[in-house]
Simulated assay, not measured.
Amino acid sequence: MPLPDDYKQLADAYGPGTFCGFLHLYHPHAPTQWVDLTGPMPATIRQQLQHDRDRGTHPVPHDPRHLFPMGATDNGEYLFWVTEPPTVPDQWHIALNEARGPRWYAYEGGIADFLVAVLTGQARVLLFPKDVLDQGVYFTPSVPAPRQLHQEVPTSTAISTQEIRTWARAHGYDVPDRGRIPGGIVDGWRQAHGQ
């Protein structure tokens, strides 16, 4: 699949990591499969959206086949490319879904323009916390983690987020009571439990 030029430049310049401790862009060389652009997450998220759309659980304003997950927030929102037209990636625009609700946000531009608009305060995404920019604008590179190539990812095994939160707190991690659990903590829990 071709990718937008602005994303390729961003990925080359910054590598895997997080903007403002909140916004994670998926990257082909990410330290874990959970934020890897070429890993299992994009397909898994797309399947969830198709399931929601088929069952009417949450409205999905685009055909899930035209949504390519390319990032996430610490609150659990996903960022998507709306891949229309499919063969002209530099014309794709950005969509975000609410983590635990039906709302969507659309940005009529590419990921680089979206980041500039959000991180300079020119665009306000109502799905994001008001204090996202309170600590200033910064980028934190991901810490590389050991990975196994071609690792099978269980798709039917449910993981109790409460169990992960309890384990994380017992091991000195600061985790929120609700929302997305940072990928590094989930990876640590999986490693500690042989998963």
Rank of each mutant, 00 (worst) to 15 (best):
155 T>L: 11
72 A>D: 11
176 P>N: 12
51 H>W: 09
33 Q>R: 13
168 A>I: 08
118 V>D: 05
18 T>I: 15
148 Q>W: 10
108 E>M: 09
181 I>L: 10
41 M>P: 07
45 I>W: 04
128 F>L: 14
48 Q>G: 11
189 W>M: 06
167 W>S: 08
130 K>V: 13
135 Q>R: 15
32 T>E: 02
169 R>F: 11
1 M>Y: 09
189 W>I: 02
54 D>M: 03
127 L>D: 05
95 A>S: 13
138 Y>C: 04
110 G>V: 05
110 G>D: 07
68 F>M: 14
64 P>F: 04
194 G>P: 06
104 W>H: 06
112 A>E: 04
134 D>V: 08
130 K>T: 15
154 P>R: 15
13 A>Q: 10
117 A>N: 05
139 F>P: 01
123 A>H: 07
164 I>E: 00
39 G>L: 04
153 V>T: 14
103 R>H: 11
25 L>S: 04
73 T>K: 08
163 E>V: 12
188 G>A: 14
99 A>Y: 13
57 T>H: 05
52 D>I: 03
31 P>C: 03
30 A>K: 01
44 T>W: 13
126 L>P: 09
58 H>Q: 07
114 F>L: 10
164 I>K: 01
110 G>F: 05
160 S>N: 06
190 R>C: 12
42 P>L: 00
146 P>Y: 06
34 W>Q: 15
166 T>W: 08
177 D>M: 08
99 A>C: 13
152 E>Y: 14
15 G>L: 03
195 Q>A: 15
109 G>R: 02
171 H>W: 02
16 P>H: 01
189 W>P: 00
10 L>W: 02
2 P>W: 05
64 P>I: 06
120 T>A: 05
39 G>E: 02
88 V>R: 15
147 R>N: 10
108 E>V: 05
154 P>D: 15
157 T>D: 06
59 P>D: 11
166 T>V: 12
17 G>L: 00
120 T>H: 03
24 H>C: 10
190 R>M: 12
95 A>Y: 10
65 R>D: 14
16 P>W: 02
115 L>Y: 08
19 F>I: 10
118 V>Y: 04
75 N>C: 14
36 D>R: 03
151 Q>S: 11
82 V>M: 08
111 I>A: 06
125 V>K: 02
80 F>W: 10
76 G>P: 14
40 P>H: 12
83 T>N: 09
94 I>G: 05
103 R>A: 11
100 R>T: 09
37 L>W: 02
33 Q>I: 08
178 R>S: 12
162 Q>A: 11
89 P>A: 00
13 A>K: 09
104 W>F: 05
71 G>S: 02
129 P>L: 15
34 W>E: 14
126 L>V: 14
24 H>S: 10
63 D>I: 01
36 D>F: 07
179 G>R: 07
124 R>I: 11
36 D>S: 07
129 P>E: 15
191 Q>M: 13
192 A>L: 08
2 P>S: 12
24 H>Y: 14
5 D>F: 13
104 W>D: 00
160 S>K: 03
104 W>G: 00
134 D>H: 11
172 G>K: 06
101 G>T: 08
56 G>A: 03
13 A>G: 09
60 V>S: 00
104 W>Y: 03
60 V>C: 02
103 R>P: 00
70 M>G: 03
80 F>I: 08
127 L>H: 04
166 T>D: 13
